[in-house]
């Protein structure tokens, strides 16, 4: 098994928004998707997934309906709201800026910056 990292603080919301942006999806699928896409590098605690979903729904970034899955069971499907999409864009952009800046600093050679 490869070593797993914990999620940096506050990024779970961003990841959830991104996954949900791809189309209506239920909680379990979100967990699966996160696991797969991050190639098992990132440890997503399932226990904190649902409180995060409920919080995002409460803030009006997500909305949810009960629909049947392919297997015929009823599940709660989350969708992004207009507000959620805007939030995703700003957060993604600021994440990009942050990682770029952190990356620059890490790549810096000793004494390379005046």
């Amino acid at each position: 098994m490869t070593e797993k990292s914990d999620l940096p603080q506050g990024t779970l919301d961003l990841l959830i928004l991104k996954v949900v942006a791809l189309g209506p999806v239920h909680g379990y699928a979100i967990a699966q998707r996160l696991q797969q896409v991050s190639r098992d590098v990132v440890q997503v605690p399932q226990g904190s997934l649902y409180p995060a979903l409920h919080r995002l729904e409460n803030r009006g970034l997500l909305t949810a309906d009960w629909k049947d899955t392919d297997t015929g069971r009823e599940a709660k499907f989350y969708r992004l709201t207009r507000k959620g999409r805007a939030q995703l864009e700003t957060e993604a952009a600021s994440w990009e800026r942050l990682t770029a800046a952190v990356g620059l600093i890490l790549k810096m050679s000793d004494g390379g910056v005046q």
Binding site: P45, Q46, G47, S48, Y50, P51
Partner: peptide, 18 residues
Amino acid sequence: LALGGPEQVKEYCRDSRG
């Protein structure tokens, strides 16, 4: 085990309702 204690998860969800 992966999900955590169901009652605890529920409690967190209730908290996040505001």
